[in-house]
Computed example of a mutant assay.
Amino acid sequence: MGKDRGREVWQREKVSSPCVNVCVIHPEARLCTGCLRSLDEIAGWSRMSEEERRAIMAELPSRGPLKATRRGGRRGRLSRG
């Protein structure tokens, strides 16, 4: 039992992902404005096979681009009044 044996447990293949760390859900399209995935796709991503992820990633360009819309802040409060 060497020092490297314990490290094997924590090593795994990197899961390919279209995530760009811009996590804003578009209110009408219900897709992330950063990666264009649905909430269900995001939630199940780590459980999908590489083939399933590749199929979704191939479809993503046809979904966007989506413009993020702000619903809060001063402008949002003024428009509600």
Rank of each mutant, 00 (worst) to 15 (best):
Glu8Lys: 14
Arg30Pro: 11
Leu39Ser: 14
Ile56Gln: 00
Gly6Glu: 11
Cys23Arg: 09
Leu31Cys: 07
Ala55Leu: 01
Gln11Tyr: 00
Glu51Tyr: 01
Arg71Val: 14
Arg75Pro: 00
Pro18Trp: 06
Trp45Ile: 13
Thr69Pro: 00
Ser38Asn: 11
Ile42Cys: 04
Leu36Gln: 02
Cys32Thr: 12
Ser38Ala: 12
Pro61Ile: 09
Met48Gln: 09
Cys35Asp: 12
Gly72Glu: 10
Gly81Met: 01
Arg63Phe: 00
Thr69Val: 14
Glu28Thr: 15
Met57Ile: 05
Ser46Met: 09
Gly72Leu: 11
Cys23Ser: 06
Gly44Tyr: 08
Gly2Tyr: 06
Pro65Ser: 03
Arg53Lys: 06
Arg5Asp: 15
Ser16His: 10
Arg12Gly: 11
Val15Phe: 13
Pro18Met: 02
Arg5Trp: 11
Glu28Leu: 05
Arg71Glu: 15
Met48Gly: 01
Gly72Asp: 14
Arg70Phe: 13
Gly76Lys: 05
Ser62Tyr: 06
Arg47Pro: 01
Cys35Ser: 14
Thr69Asp: 10
Ala58Arg: 07
Glu13Trp: 00
Gly34Asn: 09
Ser79Lys: 01
Ile42Leu: 15
Gly44Cys: 05
Gly72Asn: 04
Ile42Lys: 12
Arg74Val: 13
Arg80Asp: 03
Cys23Asn: 13
Cys35Tyr: 09
Arg37Lys: 15
Ala55Ile: 07
Ser16Lys: 10
Gly64Lys: 03
Cys35Ile: 05
Glu50Gly: 08
Arg80Tyr: 00
Asp40His: 06
Glu50Gln: 13
Ser49Ala: 02
Pro65Gln: 04
Asp40Pro: 08
Glu52Gln: 15
Val9Ala: 12
Trp45Lys: 01
Glu51Lys: 14
Ser16Gln: 11
Ser49Arg: 10
Pro18Ser: 12
Arg74Met: 09
Glu8Phe: 12
Pro65Glu: 02
Cys19Met: 08
Glu41Tyr: 07
Thr33Lys: 04
Glu59Asn: 09
Cys19Ile: 07
Pro61Val: 12
Asn21Val: 10
Arg54Ile: 02
Arg77Ile: 08
Ile25Arg: 14
Leu78Trp: 03
Leu36Cys: 03
Thr69Ala: 04
Arg77Gln: 13
Ala55Asn: 06
Arg77His: 08
Glu41His: 07
Lys67Val: 11
Arg54Lys: 15
Lys67Leu: 09
Ser62Gly: 10
Val24Gln: 11
Ala29Cys: 06
Glu13Val: 04
Glu51Gln: 15
Arg30Gly: 02
Glu13His: 13
Thr33Phe: 05
Arg63Trp: 02
Arg70Met: 12
Ser62Leu: 05
Arg71Tyr: 14
Leu31Gly: 11
Gly73His: 05
Lys3Asp: 14
Glu28Asn: 13
Ser16Leu: 07
Glu50Phe: 04
Gly81Trp: 04
Glu59Ile: 04
Ser38Glu: 10
Ser62Phe: 09
Ile25Pro: 02
Leu66Val: 05
Val9Lys: 15
Arg63Gln: 01
Leu39Asp: 06
Val20Glu: 01
Met57Asn: 06
Lys3Pro: 06
Val22Leu: 11
Leu66Asp: 03
Arg80Cys: 07
Leu78Ile: 12
Cys35Arg: 03
Ala68Gln: 06
Met57Ser: 05
